[in-house]
């Protein structure tokens, strides 16, 4: 569509007293893409979103949403975007339907449109059965979905989501991811904050890693993973007896090969998918039986540790699995 970016942050700064919550942050989000703002609690993600959505006034710097300046043209910005805040900000005392009616009236949308859009959004978000119940009777996932329906009522081309899946169970989380992906295929630009590396990895085209108010890295998920270390081809053999033969075969294609006897695995440092297909072809003709062959990249978790020196999530068991790798595998 248009070449103009959907969202821009230009040297945004926000101080709260002596705290620099956001310290000179700039980024550009092309229309129709998904930007993930990734960072731990207190990194300044929410403050960034609050500034871009005109809820908070920057100490300095500015931003543009749909081409409108957040300081000079706040009302145009508000008309162009939807916001789903950190806590689902639905009115608990109102029913689901009344929540949409309220927001529709405040946008000045035609009643008929609001009524139709409500049916459509509720059907889409699986809320039709609860439309006339007070929102306080909703589960966490339902509230999020209602919040999202409210944000989408005026069909904004740009949607900001502040930690959209925090506190949701895995089922609701993946359900919400599906909805967000659908929105993107329809052309909506998304800016989402998250503490979950997995979420950014799953949804975002472009990730901006924020820590202590500053941008410490930016790029596609793949680019960021490459920064944390090389990918490797991991081969799991059916018979432990073949381990040495397999290692020899792989040495011809990679400078560094490790053998793990206990798990019958041979790992070879690799440049990417090309190396993996070459190695797969070699095994195809070698007669060595494989259980699995795949490309392992460092996870975003590793990236985060590499960039900040600390983990993104402070779960007690997180330290134990620091070398976990995601496998983009081809079963053999």
């Amino acid at each position: 569509m248009t070449a103009a970016p959907a969202v821009e942050a230009v040297e945004l700064v926000k101080h709260f007293g002596d705290t620099r919550a956001v310290d000179d942050v700039s980024f550009v989000v092309p229309a129709g893409s998904v930007l993930g703002l990734l960072g731990p609690n207190g990194a300044g993600k929410t403050t960034l979103v609050r500034m871009l959505t005109t809820l908070s006034v920057p100490t300095s710097g500015t931003g543009r949403v749909a081409g409108f300046d957040i300081i000079e043209q706040p009302n145009e910005v508000r008309r162009s975007m939807g916001l789903t805040g950190q806590a689902a900000t639905v009115d608990e005392i109102l029913t689901g339907r009344e929540n949409l009616k309220l927001i529709g009236a405040l946008y000045g949308l035609p009643r008929k449109y609001v009524a139709e859009a409500t049916e459509r959004l509720f059907a889409r978000f699986d809320l039709t059965h609860a439309a006339d119940r007070m929102a306080k009777t909703y589960s966490g996932g339902m509230r999020r979905r209602l919040d999202l329906a409210v944000s989408l009522l005026a069909a904004p081309p740009i949607l900001f989501l502040d930690e959209p899946t925090t506190g949701l169970d895995p089922m609701s989380r993946s359900g919400l991811w599906d909805v967000l992906r659908e929105l993107v295929t329809e052309g909506t630009t998304l800016v989402l904050t998250t503490q979950y590396l997995e979420e950014a990895d799953n949804l975002a085209d472009e990730i901006v890693v924020v820590d202590k108010g500053k941008v410490i890295a930016a790029g596609t998920p793949t680019q960021l993973k490459d920064r944390a270390g090389k990918a490797s081809v991991v081969v799991t053999l059916t018979n432990a007896a073949d381990l040495d033969a397999a290692a020899d075969l792989m040495r011809a294609h990679s400078p560094e090969v490790h053998v793990e006897r206990g798990s019958r695995r041979v790992t070879a440092q690799a440049g990417g998918l090309g190396d993996m297909t070459r190695i797969a072809a070699v095994f195809e003709t070698s007669g060595i039986e494989l259980d699995d062959l795949g490309l392992a990249r460092p996870s975003l978790d590793d990236v985060f540790l590499h960039l900040t020196g600390h983990r993104a999530e402070t779960e007690p068991d997180a330290g134990a699995s620091s070398s976990d790798a995601t496998t983009e595998g081809v079963p053999s």
């Binding site: 949308l109 449109y113 069909a155 052309g187």
Partner: peptide, 13 residues
């Protein structure tokens, strides 16, 4: 396919 980004008329109150 794009129905939901076709925007309704917004008349700020």
């Amino acid at each position: 396919a794009r129905t939901s980004v076709t925007r309704p008329p917004i008349h700020p109150p």
